[in-house]
Amino acid sequence: MNVSFILAVAVGGALGSVARYLVGIGAGKLFGTDFPWGTLIINITGSFLMGVLAGLFATRWNLPQAARIFLTVGICGGYTTFSTFSLDSFYLIERGELVATAAYMVGSVVLSVGALIGAMHVVRTMA
C-alpha cells in the first residue's frame, strides 16, 4: 500500500467532488432542473478530460505514477466515475473485444440502474 497514492486519490477526489458539485449547481441555474443537465454535462466533460489525460500520458507526458493517479482516479474519479467507465469501454473497443464491450456497457448501465431501483424498493417497503 503506497501512502502517496492514497493521498493523491484523496486530495484529487476532494477537488473533483467539489468541481462536480459546482458544475451541477451552475447547470441547474443555467438550464433548470427539469432534466439532469448537470449530470449529463459532468459525465461528458469528465469523459473528455479522461480522454485528454490518457492521450497525453500515452504520447507526451511522462508523469510520476502518483501524479497520474491524482489526475485520473482522484480528480476525474471524484468528478465522475463515468469517465473511468468510458475509458474502460474505449480500451475494450481498442482491443477489438466488441462482445465484452457491449456486455460491459449494457451491463454497467442496466445493472447499476437496476441495483438502485431494487435498493429504493427495499428501503421504501421497510418504511
Rank of each mutant, 00 (worst) to 15 (best):
N2A: 10
N2K: 11
F5T: 14
F5N: 15
F5S: 15
F5P: 07
L7S: 03
A8F: 01
A8I: 01
V9R: 00
V9T: 03
V9D: 00
A10L: 10
A10W: 03
G13C: 08
G13W: 02
A14T: 14
L15T: 05
L15S: 05
G16K: 02
S17M: 14
V18F: 07
A19P: 13
R20T: 01
R20P: 04
Y21I: 09
I25E: 12
I25C: 04
I25M: 12
G26F: 02
A27W: 11
G28N: 04
L30G: 03
F31V: 05
G32N: 06
D34N: 14
D34K: 15
F35C: 08
W37T: 14
T39Y: 12
L40S: 11
I41G: 12
I41R: 09
I42D: 05
S47I: 01
F48K: 05
F48N: 04
L49F: 13
L53C: 03
L53Q: 01
L53D: 01
A54H: 10
G55M: 06
G55C: 11
L56K: 10
F57V: 00
T59Q: 07
W61H: 01
A66R: 14
A67P: 06
A67K: 09
R68Q: 07
I69L: 10
I69N: 01
I69H: 01
F70K: 01
T72L: 06
T72C: 11
T72M: 08
C76W: 02
G78R: 00
G78M: 12
T80R: 10
T80V: 07
T84Y: 15
T84H: 15
F85H: 04
S86F: 00
D88G: 04
Y91S: 09
Y91T: 12
L92T: 02
G96F: 00
G96W: 00
L98P: 08
A100Y: 07
A102I: 14
M105F: 08
G107E: 07
S108P: 12
S108T: 15
S112Q: 13
V113K: 10
G114W: 09
G114S: 05
L116R: 08
L116D: 13
I117P: 04
I117E: 12
A119F: 12
A119T: 09
M120S: 11
H121Y: 14
V123T: 15
R124M: 12
T125S: 14
T125N: 15
M126K: 13
A127Q: 15
